[in-house]
Design a protein around this nucleic acid. Structure first.
Lengths: 339, 339
DNA sequence: CTGAAAGCGCTTACAG
DNA sequence: CTGAAAGCGCTTACAG
C-alpha cells in the first residue's frame, strides 16, 4: 500500500494540512517541523498523488503532444522523433511529462486534440505540423509547431520557410540553373506553401518565368508523389536542370526515377532537398539538404508552452528557429552538353 | 467553464449519481433516462474529468514509457520511434495514452520509472531496452521490451537474440567465411550478450575457434566504438573476412574505417548487420541487415500491458517477436586472393 | 429505477 | 506556528 499524506501526518503527530505545507516548503511552517516531516515522508517513501493535486489545482504537469495524421505514421519520418527529443528534453528539465495523443485509425488532429483536453490530463497542447485548419476551441494553451493558417492569433514556432524556399532556389540559380522544378507541394501543409512562395519570389527576382506545370504535388510526410507526371516533365527536351525537393525521401525516389530514364544526379539534374536525414546522407549521391533543426523546434515549443502555462505570456508569440544548409554532392552546375 | 457532472445533473433534473450511471451505461438506469441524459451531456459538451475518475478508480488510462539512457538520446535511433509507433497504435485502439518519461539529464531508467509511478499518473510501465539491472519495486505492472536479466520473473517481449546471433554467424559461414569478428558487444545490454552467445554457439558447432580478441565492444545506442582496436585487428595478416555488427550505424562507421585502410565491403570484408535502417539501405554498399520488427515489439508489449492492467494475466509472460533478414550487398564470399 | 452520503488524496482559505 | 473544514469532480456501496 502506498503511503498517503494521512499516514505521514499520523506518523508525525500533526495534521495533513501541516504535512502538505511542510512538503511544499510553506514558510508558515517552522523550519524544524519542515525538516522533521520531510525526513518522515522520505522514510515512508511518500510521494504525493499527482492526480489528487491536479484535481484541486486544476493543473497537471503534463503537456499533450499531437502528431499529424495518426500519431504513428508521422513518427516514421525522422523529423518527428527529433522534435520529440527536443520536447522531452525541455519538459524534463522542468519536471513536466509528455502525453502522446494516440489516434489508432484516421483520427484527425482536431479530434485527437479535443480528446486529450477533454480528458483533463493535460495542461497544454503542442500540435505538430500545421495542417491547414485545426480549428479548435480548447481551454488550455496551444502551441503549434509549423505555421498555422490563422498565424497572427496563435502561438507557434516555425522555420522561416519562405526564406528557406527562396534560399533553395537562389542556391541553384547561383550555380547557373534557370530551369527549376518544385517537388512536393501539398496544399494541406503550410510549410510546403511557404517554401513554394519563397521559391517563386526568387524566380521572379531573377526574372525567370513561373512554370506552374513544374510544381509537382505530393503527399507530405507520406512522401508519395506523381511519378508519371515527373517522368513526363523530364521527357520534354526543355526539361528542368534542377529540383527543389521538400524532403530527402522524395529526392531519393526522384533520383531512382531519373536513373531509370538515364538521367544522373547531379550530372544531369541537381537536387536540393530538405530535412537532412541519415538516408540522404548515405544516399548516392549524398544529398545537399536543409536542416530545419527539429530538435530546437521542440525545445522552443516546450519553452513557450511552459511560459504559457505559468501565465507569463499574453499576446500571441511566434518563434522562428533558424535553418542551416548541409552542402553535399547532389548539386552541381548545369550540364552544358545537354539541350 | 467546462461543464461538470453537477451541471448536467441540474440540467437533467436528476442527481449526479444518475448522470454518472447513465453515462457508464449502468443497466440500473432506464434506457429512456440513459438516452435523455446522454443527449443533454452531449449538448453541454460534457466530458468526465479523468483525473477525478482516476482518483476514485485508482486507475488511469495512461501507460508510462521509459526509454534507455535519457529519453531523448535513444529517440535518435530509428529503432525507438518504430517501437513507439507500435505502442501508440495498440494503445490508441483501446483508448489508452502514452506518457513519456522525460529525464533531462543522466536520469537512470530506474529513477525515471520510479518517478512516473510515484506521480500516480500511470497504470503501468513499459520499459524499453533492458539494461542489465533496472531492479525496481513498483506498484503497477511492468513490461520490458528486451530481455531483462531476471527474465523468468518478469513480463517481457523480445527478439530471440541468441537465435539471431546464431543466424548471423551461420549466414556468413554458409558463404565460406571462417574468420568472423563480432562488433558491438556492450555488457550493459542483454541484447548484445544474447547475440554474442548465439554467435559463439554457431562457431562452436562449426568447430571454429572462439577468438575473444575479435569481440569488439561498443556503446549500444550511442554506437561509438574503439576504432583503434578495429584498425589493429584488420592490420594483422590473419584478419577477419567477415563481421557480425550490432547496428547499421556501427557498420557504416566500420565501412568508412576499412575504406581508409584500403579494404572494401564486401570485396575484402563482409558485413552482416542489425536494425535494417534507412541509412543502411542507402549506404554503399546497401547493408544486409536483420529487421527485428520494432513496430511489432511495441504492439505486442502494449497488448500484454493492457491484459495485465485488466488483471487477465498472472504468471510471467514472455513474448518472442520474429526477426527477418534483409539481404543486400554487404555480404559476399571471402576474397580468395587475399592472405 | 433513483438519490444521499461517503470517500478517492490532496490543498487552501479561514480561524485561532 | 498549526488545525478543522470545505472542496476539486467524480464513483459506488447503501438505502429506499
Amino acid at each position: 500500500m502506498k503511503a498517503t499524506i494521512k499516514d505521514v501526518a499520523r506518523e508525525a503527530g500533526v495534521s495533513p494540512s501541516t504535512v502538505s505545507r511542510a512538503l511544499r516548503n510553506n514558510p508558515r511552517i517552522s523550519q524544524a517541523m519542515r525538516d522533521r516531516i520531510r525526513d518522515i515522508a522520505a522514510r515512508m517513501d511518500f510521494h504525493p498523488n499527482q492526480m489528487a493535486r491536479s484535481l484541486v489545482n486544476r493543473k497537471t504537469r503534463i503537456v499533450g503532444i499531437v502528431f499529424p495524421g495518426d500519431a504513428g505514421q508521422s513518427l516514421g519520418h525522422p523529423f518527428y522523433p527529433a522534435v520529440l527529443q527536443g520536447l522531452g528534453f525541455a519538459a524534463g528539465e522542468r519536471r513536466y511529462h509528455l502525453l502522446l495523443a494516440t489516434g489508432a485509425e484516421a483520427v484527425s488532429t482536431a479530434e485527437a486534440s479535443q480528446s486529450l483536453v477533454h480528458s483533463g490530463y493535460v495542461s497544454g497542447l503542442i500540435i505538430l505540423a500545421a495542417e491547414v485548419s485545426p480549428h479548435l476551441d480548447v481551454s488550455v494553451p496551444v502551441v503549434v509547431i509549423g505555421r498555422p493558417e490563422d498565424a497572427n492569433q496563435r502561438h507557434y514556432v516555425d522555420t522561416n520557410n519562405v526564406l528557406a524556399g527562396h534560399t533553395a532556389a537562389r542556391h541553384l540559380m547561383d550555380r547557373g540553373h534557370s530551369r527549376l522544378m518544385f517537388l512536393g507541394f501539398d496544399p494541406q501543409y503550410t510549410v510546403t506553401m511557404d517554401r513554394l512562395r519563397g521559391y517563386h519570389q526568387a524566380l521572379e527576382e531573377a526574372g525567370l518565368p513561373l512554370r506552374e506545370d513544374w510544381v509537382v504535388p505530393s503527399r507530405f510526410i507520406h512522401n508519395t508523389t506523381d511519378n508519371a507526371l515527373i517522368r513526363q516533365i523530364f521527357l520534354s527536351p526543355d526539361r528542368p536542370t534542377a529540383v527543389v525537393s521538400m524532403d530527402d525521401a522524395l529526392s531519393i525516389g526522384l533520383t531512382g526515377l531519373l536513373g531509370d530514364m538515364g538521367l544522373q544526379v547531379p550530372r544531369d539534374v541537381s537536387v536540393i532537398s530538405f530535412n537532412n536525414t541519415e538516408a540522404g546522407r548515405y544516399h548516392v549521391p549524398p544529398l545537399t539538404s536543409f536542416d530545419v533543426n527539429p530538435y530546437q523546434l521542440g525545445v522552443s515549443a516546450m519553452g513557450l508552452m511552459l511560459d504559457l502555462i505559468k501565465g507569463r505570456v499574453t499576446k500571441p508569440v511566434a518563434i522562428v528557429v533558424p535553418f542551416t544548409l548541409a552542402e553535399r554532392d547532389s548539386v552541381a552546375a548545369p550540364n552544358t552538353n545537354q539541350p
